[in-house]
């Protein structure tokens, strides 16, 4: 079980990195919606599997604060059009991307998400959604190309994708609020860490 997950992580990482990395990067949509999420996901799965109970990480990541901040700021940095350009222009930044996304976004997310205050979790979810809507809208109305390495029409497709993803995700989360029973979940998680935080 654990071995298959680690293989999957490796697979995701190599998928993003190897020769096919080029194939992802020639398209803005594939770059942003497949490669970057894959790198983050690889880190996330690895973190969930192997690091979530690491004593040292728990010690320096009380209430998940340091980790979630790192995830937000470094992840946010890779949302900048300029960062995408930089990753394509020179090999240094490309390497930084392959390292920072799994290690400084995926892993911190994995080890912090369950530890942060549930209200903070909800705020981050909503802020993530509204950010997708804003980015989508901006990409659609921007008169200029935001990335020098991609065409305007790709940017527009990406903008639409953002809007579609944001809409589906909000519908999914709304449905969840009506479909699941959070009483049971709360009792199941009774001995989990974050419950203490909410009191």
């Amino acid at each position: 079980m654990s071995r298959s997950i680690l293989f999957f992580v490796l697979f995701l990482y190599l998928l993003s990195y190897s020769i096919i990395g080029q194939w992802f990067e020639v398209s803005m949509v594939r770059h942003v919606l497949i490669q970057i999420p894959c790198l983050v996901l690889a880190g996330y799965l690895f973190g969930r599997k192997s690091l979530i109970n690491n004593r040292f990480l728990i010690l320096i990541n009380d209430k998940g604060l340091a980790g979630i901040l790192m995830c937000i700021f470094i992840g946010g940095y890779w949302m900048l059009p300029r960062a995408l350009d930089a990753a394509l222009a020179g090999s240094n930044m490309a390497l930084v991307k392959y390292i920072s996304l799994p290690f400084f976004v995926g892993i911190p997310l994995a080890i912090s998400w369950q530890r942060i205050h549930p209200i903070a979790r909800a705020v981050i979810k909503i802020e993530f959604l509204t950010m997708l809507f804003r980015l989508g809208w901006l990409y659609l109305v921007s008169p200029n190309r935001l990335c020098n390495f991609y065409q305007l029409n790709e940017q527009i497709i990406l903008g639409k994708c953002f809007l579609i993803i944001a809409t589906s995700l909000s519908l999914y989360w709304i449905l969840q609020l009506f479909a699941e029973d959070y009483r049971e979940q709360e009792t199941l998680k009774k001995n989990n860490l974050y419950d203490q935080a909410s009191s």
């Binding site: 549930p118 909800a122 609020l177 959070y182 049971e184």
Partner: peptide, 14 residues
């Protein structure tokens, strides 16, 4: 969000 959390905790879901 806090009212949502409180309500769901007691009544299950919205």
């Amino acid at each position: 969000l806090d009212t949502a959390r409180g309500i769901m905790k007691k009544y299950g879901n919205l």
